[in-house]
């Protein structure tokens, strides 16, 4: 299982990029934390989600 934003998903084996394609997240408005570290944007395509991973996808909204 891969925990994403607190919920268990069966996305192990997918790349982060593939997972994001299944969601409504706009890649220009997010930051992704994986096991305590930020995932660089250029590594979204090559980062493979593994069983036991814990991710938080921060989706930014406008206002300031």
């Amino acid at each position: 299982m891969v925990k994403i934003n607190g919920e268990n998903t069966d996305s192990a084996g997918m790349t982060l990029s593939e997972y994001l394609s299944t969601t409504d997240y706009n890649r220009a408005r997010i930051a992704v934390e994986r096991n305590g570290n930020i995932v660089p944007k250029k590594e979204y395509e090559t980062t493979v989600l593994e069983n036991g991973d814990s991710l938080e996808i921060v989706g930014f909204v406008g206002g300031g």
Partner: peptide
Amino acid sequence: EAFDKAEEKSRLVNFVLE
């Protein structure tokens, strides 16, 4: 980070962390 546009927030945060 105190921008108003979501894209600019994301860009700065990702840059600093990376």
